[in-house]
Computed example of a mutant assay.
Amino acid sequence: MTQDTLSETEYDAITDAAAQWCMRLHAAECTDQERRAFEQWRDAHPLHAFEYEAMLEIWEVAEHLPRPETAVDVAPRQPPRSWRQYAVVAGLCTLALPLAAYAGWNLGWVPDSYQHYAATDTVRQVTLSDGSQLELNLNTELTFSNYKDERRVTLKKGEAFFSVSHDTQHPFVVRAGEGRIRVTGTRFNVWMYQDQVRVNLIEGSVLVSSNTALPGDGLRLGPSMQARYKHGDYMPQISQTYPNDTALAWRSGKLVLDNLTLNEALPLINRYLNTPLMLADSNTGLIRVGGIYNIKELNNLAGSLPKVLPVYLTRNKEGNPVINPIPQQPQKN
């Protein structure tokens, strides 16, 4: 089962299974055997883990719903022990949810729509419920929630290009790492690897904050500007981009390394790898690399590095390939 062959029915089946597992794992009588079965299901496909994480977000949102004051305690003395009984309990709960959900929407607590997307081994194009167009790079996961006071995307990992539907009364906010990008309607790209985030603005304007806990909306970007931030940054770093900038080459299936140091190149490369490359030491990171690579073939890059750079590969105890410099021979006089 691969990302580009899943039908809508298969997606729905995964979502339903994720909802059942979320409900079951939160039950007090959930057994160790059931938890092991869940782990096997979760690890069987990347989308299983992603859909389950999405269900956890919905579960957390539901905990904020106000409880009806007239609710009657109808909990049985013995907890339900079958999926059928759980379905009945869930059905009864839905009778009280519409009013609570409406109150939660008006208070800005609860979204009226929630979407979650993942792209694994192929670039994926999606349309959000507000009409915004997104293009997801390989190994990308994100969610979209439509609240009364804002449209919110959470980029969990990877990279996405946004063409945001204009709505001045309903800002569009992307949360990535510890920061956020706030817009009303524009075109921009967000790249994220571990705690590093890079924002490239193509059209319109955005406000970029490196930490949502800090006051204010951040720094404003204009077209052909870039913002970078990472964990602990008080403010994002702003720079100008140029017509030959290659940050969006992924949309054509390419990764362009323009004479970068390995320190600069590895986050761009590792974003695509099953097992990230490591550097033997700080001096190794100063070696420069260039070239144009197919993003679907980057897992083969490690083996080719010794052919183009003065390096050799070893493996650390975790199994990661480590890039080591070949010692330079002293020149003879």
Rank of each mutant, 00 (worst) to 15 (best):
L155T: 02
L155E: 01
K157S: 04
E159F: 03
E159G: 01
F161H: 11
F161W: 11
F161G: 04
F161M: 07
F162E: 13
F162D: 12
S163C: 01
S163D: 13
H166W: 05
H166G: 01
T168C: 00
T168D: 13
Q169P: 00
H170T: 07
F172M: 13
V173T: 15
V174Q: 06
V174S: 03
R175V: 13
A176V: 05
G177V: 02
G177D: 09
E178P: 00
G179S: 03
R180F: 01
R180I: 00
I181M: 03
I181S: 01
R182S: 06
G185Y: 11
R187K: 15
R187T: 06
R187Q: 14
F188L: 01
F188W: 02
F188G: 05
N189L: 03
N189H: 02
V190T: 06
V190L: 10
W191K: 14
W191S: 10
M192Q: 15
Q194C: 00
D195F: 02
D195C: 02
Q196F: 02
V197T: 04
V197H: 02
R198V: 11
R198S: 14
R198C: 12
R198P: 04
V199S: 02
V199L: 02
N200E: 05
N200R: 09
L201T: 05
L201H: 02
L201I: 03
I202V: 13
E203A: 06
E203V: 06
E203M: 07
G204L: 11
S205T: 07
V206M: 04
L207R: 15
V208W: 04
S209P: 01
S209A: 12
S210V: 05
S210K: 07
S210G: 06
N211K: 09
N211Q: 09
T212Y: 01
A213R: 13
L214G: 00
L214I: 00
L214H: 09
L214F: 01
L214K: 12
P215D: 03
P215F: 01
G216E: 06
G216Y: 04
G216D: 05
G216V: 03
L219D: 12
R220H: 04
R220W: 01
L221C: 00
G222R: 14
P223A: 14
P223T: 07
S224Y: 07
S224K: 15
M225L: 04
M225S: 11
A227T: 08
Y229H: 11
Y229C: 07
K230T: 08
K230A: 14
K230S: 14
G232I: 12
Y234K: 14
Y234E: 15
M235R: 14
M235H: 11
M235F: 07
P236T: 09
Q237A: 10
I238A: 08
Q240K: 15
Q240G: 04
T241L: 10
T241H: 09
Y242E: 15
P243E: 12
N244Y: 10
N244Q: 14
N244R: 13
D245M: 10
A247R: 15
A247K: 14
A249D: 13
A249C: 11
A249W: 09
W250R: 12
W250M: 10
W250A: 06
W250I: 10
R251I: 06
